[in-house]
Every structure is written in structure tokens, then in C-alpha cells.
Computed example of a mutant assay.
Amino acid sequence: MRRLKKIGIVLAVLYVLLLGVTYAFQEKLIFIPSKMPANHVYDFCQPYEEFWLAAPDGARLNAVHIQNNSQKGVVLYFHGNSGNISHLIHVANLVTRYDYDAIFVDYRTYGKSTGELSEAAIKSDAQLFYDYTKQRYDESTIVVYGRSFGTGVASGLAAENNPCKLILESPFYSAVALGKHRFPIFPIDLLSNYRFPSNEYVQRVKCPITIIHGTADRIIPFEQAQDLFTQVPDGQGTFYTVEGGGHNYLQDFDVFKKAMDTALK
């Protein structure tokens, strides 16, 4: 019994230490930024303008404005938790195919952007880019589009503003719910500094919402998107199931193309 007690104490101490490490380094578990030299020249097929916005805390935020001289409007796009703007050539091709302009945003520490990460800072930065977009386009022509991690940013932004459409590709129910799925042994409710409650946000969104998710997604379970869709006001959302689709390359499926044909018509 004494030996079992010692083992129990050791395991408890290790668990507490693991909790502390997880809390202290949660940004490393959530964000996988890919940095880019400040002098990098983006390789988009379309005419574009690279621009910077200054955050109140001094962070410099990098973005690209794809300029197709569209009469339809613009897609304000928030990517996932890895990569950067330079990886969005296929998105630029998709958006311009539907005759929209596009604005691609790099979060703090991603690409050329600088600053310290926090949920409040990411939300504030997103609003800066939305305000930039509103200065150049009528708000009734702004489509907010988020993918993966970016769906939490996009849904929160749409809840606070009045875009014409919200597109969520491979979304989570909330960052906390996703954290519980990935790390079931930890009290994520207490540990997480990143909550992004998309389930609450979509209830306040006033425009049509399109949700697209693959059934074979191993990063964000398909059920998270299903649960999120139950929070969308009746008659305001459309859910597209991509059978066999994983977390990436949904654009290769006909269902995804159908979703885009409807959302970006």
C-alpha cells in the first residue's frame, strides 16, 4: 500500500507539472506559424497590393489585397493555424474565378506580421482589417470567410458587424470544445486562454451562413461542425457534407464546388 501511495503521489506531481507546462506553452500547441522574410514578393497570378496595418500595441499586420476590379464585392479571408498568406494562391484563384476581390490576412507572428498573440489581440486585429475593407467596399458586398482556426475569427467578426455572407470551412464548435477533444485528460475550461466560442457567435450573425466540413476530418471532427450548425438561427444556414473529405483539399470535391457556386454566386 505504501508503494502504491508513493506511485500515486509521483503520478499526481507529474500531472500537475504537465498541466503547468501545457498552460505555459499553449500557444505552441495551438499556433504553427510560418514566418516570411519582410522582402518576400508574393507570387499571385492576379494583380494585388501588399499592405500593412498598425495595431494599437505597435504590432505590424501584413495582408494582401487581390484586386480583380470586382463589381460583386470582396472576400475577407482568415486562414488556419498554420502557414501564411503565401500558401493561399489556390484561394485567390477560387475567389477570382467567382469574380470577387479578396483580402488575405496574416495573424500576428505569421508571415511578415509581428506582435504578441492573444485572443483579444487577434479579434482586435480582425476588426482593423474589416474596417479597412469597409473603407473600400460597401459592407453589403463583404463576404467573411474562415477556414479551420480562422472560422473562430470569422464567426466572431461577423457577429459584431454586418457582412453579406459568412463562409465557414472545417469549423469547430468552440476552441474549448476542440481542446477537450484533443486533450481529454486536461481541464481545458480552466487552462485555455483561447476560447473563440463560435457556437455563441453564430447565434448573433445576421447574414446567411455556409458551413462546409469533411466526414473524414481528423483535425476537427465532423461532429463539431454538426453541433455548430444547430446553433445557427433557423433558415439562415446551409450545411454541406463532404463525404470522405479530410481537413485539407476540400476544394477537390464536387460538394465543395457546389457550396461555392451557391455562396459566391
Rank of each mutant, 00 (worst) to 15 (best):
3 R>Y: 06
9 I>A: 15
12 A>Y: 01
21 V>R: 04
23 Y>C: 12
26 Q>I: 11
32 I>P: 00
32 I>G: 13
33 P>K: 13
35 K>L: 11
37 P>R: 07
39 N>L: 08
61 L>H: 01
62 N>D: 13
65 H>C: 07
65 H>A: 13
70 S>D: 01
70 S>N: 04
74 V>Q: 01
75 V>L: 09
76 L>I: 03
77 Y>S: 08
82 S>N: 08
83 G>L: 11
83 G>F: 11
83 G>V: 13
89 I>Q: 10
98 Y>P: 02
98 Y>V: 08
100 Y>K: 03
107 Y>C: 05
108 R>Y: 09
112 K>Q: 12
115 G>I: 10
117 L>K: 04
117 L>S: 09
123 K>Y: 13
127 Q>G: 02
132 Y>N: 10
139 E>C: 13
139 E>A: 15
147 R>T: 12
148 S>K: 01
153 V>M: 10
158 A>T: 08
166 L>N: 05
166 L>I: 11
168 L>G: 09
174 S>E: 05
176 V>W: 01
185 I>N: 09
185 I>V: 15
187 P>G: 11
188 I>L: 07
190 L>H: 04
191 L>W: 02
199 N>K: 02
200 E>W: 09
201 Y>Q: 05
205 V>Q: 06
205 V>H: 07
206 K>A: 14
213 H>D: 09
220 I>K: 08
229 F>M: 14
229 F>G: 14
231 Q>F: 02
233 P>D: 07
243 E>W: 01
251 Q>D: 05
252 D>G: 03
255 V>F: 03
255 V>A: 12
257 K>G: 11
260 M>C: 07
262 T>H: 04
265 K>A: 14
